[in-house]
Design a protein around this nucleic acid. Structure first.
Length: 214
DNA sequence: GGCCAGGTGTAAA
DNA sequence: TTTACACATGGC
């Protein structure tokens, strides 16, 4: 019988349609976006990425060479811009140590390498693994945790939540990619930090706010 | 004007 | 091992 999480996926896909994540023209741009979007809405990230492209620094060498202060200006819309500048610089330093981006993405224990870069945590690492390296790592974000807690009453740390998806879903890169995107879509629209389940397309089967149905 | 956004690192309890 | 806080801009 189909797992609850697989059933939820089907309903989300049916309602929202294919999201086609990650937005980004190249693998490298996906990686940059993964860092820039940390705790910030994607709208802010788009401006920063446009700025970087206009400046012609959407590649490792250019990011290494660009002045810190200049890069800070370009990515200012994403907030935390001083920290994020350091994070981008550290990332390209490590990429170049492995030669090319392709070689970097083929590292066997890429996840460990990513996590050893200061400023890249579990979610950013898994986003890069899934959307840039096409490896089957489920991405857990704040929405994922919130949705799982409200629907199933399940709480846990990053790895625990990730394991639940690993166990209930078949290992599939396209499935993981689409599922995370759909959870973000659901979260943005209906499962915000402050309860706003109004009009939620997958309200049935969700235990949140039980008994207070209006 | 206040809350929230596709987190992470650090320090203190 | 958990909790609190800094980091910062922009949309609604």
């Amino acid at each position: 019988m189909m797992s609850e999480l697989k059933a939820l996926f089907n309903r989300l896909l049916d309602h929202f349609g294919e999201q086609g994540w990650w937005p980004g023209e190249t693998r490298f741009e996906v990686m940059i976006g993964a860092i820039l979007t940390q705790n910030v809405s994607w709208l802010n990230v788009e401006r920063a990425i446009d700025n970087m492209k206009e400046e012609g620094i959407m590649e490792p060498g250019a990011i290494r060479r660009v002045e810190k202060e200049r890069l800070q200006e370009l990515i200012k819309p994403t907030g935390f811009y001083r920290q994020k500048t350091e994070r981008l610089k550290r990332l390209v330093r490590v990429i170049e140590r492995y030669g090319s981006l392709d070689e970097f993405l083929q590292i066997e224990d890429l996840r460990s390498v990513l996590l050893n870069i200061k400023g890249i945590g579990s979610e950013t690492a898994d986003s890069i693994l899934l959307y840039a390296a096409d490896r089957p790592h489920f991405v857990v974000d704040a929405y994922t945790k919130r949705i799982l807690e409200r629907r199933q009453g399940i709480e846990g740390n990053y790895q625990e939540i990730k394991s639940i998806f690993d166990e209930e879903l078949e290992e599939s890169v396209p499935l993981y990619k689409e599922y995370h995107a759909l959870l973000v879509e659901l979260g943005k629209n209906y499962c915000k930090k402050n309860p706003s389940c109004e009009g939620c397309p997958v309200r049935d089967g969700c235990s949140y706010g039980e008994g207070s149905e209006g």
